[in-house]
């Protein structure tokens, strides 16, 4: 008898924990759902959607979403999952990440909202996540938005995933997910952990610069928090010096390092060495014509354009490491401007 009862209870305990292996969306949805809104604005014709997603980030009704043609209107409409309609206007937009900050007109009360944290998400690849968004505007009525489940697939450098401003630092990463979020209307939606914590915001539909495939990604909370801090401050007028950086032309390269890259016939011309200046740093280091430059300073370079871009970013350097392919072998070449004593 005692034995049987023990078994029963242990089984109950196990079942209770198995139940958690099921998704716990039921438990977290009452908290998460009301914080997300469907955003309706301009568009609706010519293949342009007039809908996207956003979410409250303050009790006073600040809403974060992506900047898009949907917002090209004086007022946008926000619809909550319960069907409440709110009017909102754009406060400011962020060209760096393509975000927009909205202010909703709350008719009293406080908005249920996510707290933006400025630390990078502690979530790890393989962790369960939910993506919640107004994809395809499926939820037209007073009904909850669409929920997809998956795992955090990993992290990728921001610049590799999307053509955001190249001045954004490389170490900043976006979150990749293994659910398809690259859908009309999904941008501005949220990726939350299985405990309902905000991990990131679904970004606009973009093709990956690495694979060419449509990417399923989210801008992590820390980037969002930084952006919102920026947006809440008075705008700074950019100085003209910031854009002074220019690509060195071929002659400058030849003067400094002593090699000529192949003429850039197309944006995809491979970075072959066309010529090496006798007695230059390049020749001393062993660089040869017809070498194919595959890495410059640890960055892969698939074309003349990419090689020039890296050389630009390193224009003050006194040393330059190249990895070249020569007759099926990889050869490491270090160019050195500082003459040995």
């Amino acid at each position: 008898m005692w034995c049987r009862a023990t078994m029963l209870l242990v089984v109950c305990g196990l079942l209770a924990s198995f139940a958690q292996a099921q998704t716990n969306w039921r438990e977290i949805s009452p908290d998460v759902g009301p914080r997300i809104v469907k955003v309706y604005g301009a568009g609706g014709g010519g293949g342009l959607e007039n809908y996207q997603t956003g979410f409250f980030i303050s009790a006073e009704g600040r809403v974060l979403t992506v900047n898009s043609p949907v917002l090209d209107t004086d007022e946008v409409t926000l619809v909550t999952e319960e069907g409440n309609r709110l009017t909102a206007r754009v406060v400011r937009t962020d060209p760096l990440l393509g975000l927009a900050l909205l202010q909703a007109e709350l008719s009293g009360g406080i908005a249920p909202h996510f707290e933006l944290k400025s630390e990078f998400s502690p979530a790890q690849p393989g962790d369960d996540v939910f993506a919640v968004s107004n994809l395809f505007n499926v939820a037209t009525g007073p009904e909850a938005l669409s929920v997809q489940r998956g795992v955090l697939a990993g992290k990728a450098p921001l610049e590799l995933v999307s053509p955001f401003d190249p001045t954004v630092k490389r170490e900043q990463a976006v979150l990749l997910v293994d659910v398809v979020t690259s859908n009309p209307g999904a941008a501005g939606g949220v990726i939350v952990s299985s405990r309902g914590e905000l991990l990131g915001m679904i970004g606009p539909e973009r093709r990956s610069r690495v694979t060419g495939a449509w990417h399923n990604y989210a801008l992590p909370t820390n980037l969002l928090a930084d952006a919102v801090t920026r947006l809440e401050q008075p705008p700074v007028i950019p100085t003209s010096e910031d854009s002074a950086a220019q690509r060195p032309d071929a002659a400058q390269l030849a003067r400094r390092w002593g090699f000529w890259l192949a003429p850039e016939i197309s944006s995809r011309t491979p970075a072959y060495i066309d010529d090496v200046v006798p007695g230059s740093a390049a020749e001393l280091a062993g660089l040869q014509p017809d070498d194919l430059v595959v890495f410059v300073a640890e960055t892969s370079t698939a074309s003349v354009a990419e090689a020039l871009a890296v050389l630009t970013s390193q224009r003050e350097a006194e040393q330059m490491a190249l990895l070249v392919e020569r007759n099926g072998e990889l050869v490491r070449i270090t160019l050195n401007l500082t003459k040995p004593e």
Binding site: T6, G13, L14, S17, F18, Q124, G126
Partner: peptide, 19 residues
């Protein structure tokens, strides 16, 4: 005993199979 069983399974669950 039942609570312990729950705790033990949760502990295991904290590990991530995929990782």
């Amino acid at each position: 005993i039942a609570l312990l069983a729950v705790a033990v399974t949760r502990l295991f669950a904290a590990e991530n199979v995929a990782r």
